[in-house]
Design a protein around this nucleic acid. Structure first.
Length: 318
DNA sequence: AAGACGAAAGTGGTTGA
DNA sequence: TCAACAACTTTCGTCTT
């Protein structure tokens, strides 16, 4: 941590490793930094886990600093528990008086009984392990992991995990947290990574939405753009253009009910032509996990509805 | 020869009776 | 539970660059 309490942002490398560009488009929530000149994802994990306060003098820092590890819902007891050591010595190493020893013994006993022996606690331990594994496998930022853990806790407290595999509920929680934080992860990616079939996962997801009555933003094509662009290595201006096209389409209401992947792909295809940074339909289709046909269909729709006029002789849009 | 296009038939998920 | 349905995919032949 820097002297004045700020961190990370200042230390982050400021030159793109691929093209040497110095301008970045940063999405803190998504934890991605995208180079605006070549479009690559320059760095992940830029989430600031530092203190939420800033201090400029030593006294200020002293007065604001709180002690201990940060509280996290990802540890079964939220990292708040105190453990009582088994040694019969006090903090400075002196033996503890016989009269206090008995009461300490009772404290230990109850601590253990309350901690690890309820079935919910056991469930939670297994689940949080799985959650950790799953989310690091998928490269999900810390903030979102915490959200997943929170969702899982809620599900557990409403007894929604009964009769369902822990994995499926965990995966559903992770998926929903991603949706809330607008991190593009598809249902099948989760399913692949967690050895549950898609169907079970889908059911669990719907269950959670229903009973935790969560408001989940619809997946938007816009959120997929950085990821697909990074795969394709397109220019920053192309990314921006594609984002504009999607926004335009969204306002005209022609994106509802359509696979966001297809929309994103089509927008990138058009943007590529406009910005003279062209990719073939096949490349784009592969990167966005749809078929060429879908790219074509969406792209024609967009061109028609957004009144983008094309001059075929020049191969350019006006 | 590669890319773009479009038609036709097939697939998996949602909706409403 | 079933059929209708929209969106998307697969496949394949044709046109364009």
């Amino acid at each position: 941590m820097g002297i004045d309490g700020r961190k990370i942002k200042d230390n982050r490398e400021t030159v793109c490793t691929l093209c040497g560009g110095e301008e970045f488009y940063e999405d803190r929530k998504r934890g991605e930094t995208i180079c605006t000149s070549c479009g690559c994802v320059a760095g992940e994990g830029t989430i600031d886990t530092g203190p939420e306060w800033r201090a400029f003098t030593a006294e200020e820092r002293e007065s604001r600093e709180r002690t201990g590890a940060p509280m996290s819902v990802m540890v079964a007891d939220k990292g708040l528990s105190t453990t009582i050591s088994w040694s019969n010595r006090d903090a400075s190493g002196r033996p503890i008086k016989a009269s206090t020893r008995a009461s300490i013994y009772r404290m230990r006993k109850w601590q253990i009984r309350t901690q690890a022996h309820s079935s919910d606690q056991r469930n939670l331990r297994i689940a949080l392990n799985e959650l950790k594994r799953l989310s690091s496998q998928l490269g999900i930022p810390h903030e979102t992991r915490e959200r997943s853990a929170l969702i899982y806790r809620k599900a557990l407290s409403k007894k929604l995990a009964r009769g369902r595999s822990i994995e499926s509920v965990v995966a559903a929680a992770v998926y929903l947290a991603c949706r809330i934080h607008k991190i593009p992860r598809r249902l099948d990616e989760l399913a692949d990574e967690s050895r549950i079939d898609r169907k079970k996962l889908g059911q669990a997801v719907r269950l959670l939405i229903r009973y935790l009555d969560m408001k989940i933003p619809l997946p938007s094509a816009k959120n997929l753009i950085p990821r697909i662009s990074a795969d394709l290595g397109v220019q920053g201006r192309t990314i921006r253009r594609a984002t504009d096209i999607i926004e335009d389409a969204r306002q005209k209401g022609i994106t509802v009910g359509k696979d966001p992947g297809g929309i994103a792909a089509a927008a990138l295809y058009i943007a590529g032509i406009i910005e003279d940074d062209r990719r073939t339909q096949r490349e784009i289709a592969q990167a966005s996990n749809v078929t060429e046909v879908t790219v074509r269909n969406r792209y024609k729709e967009l061109v028609k509805n957004l009144q983008i006029t094309m001059d075929p002789s020049e191969g350019r849009f006006a």
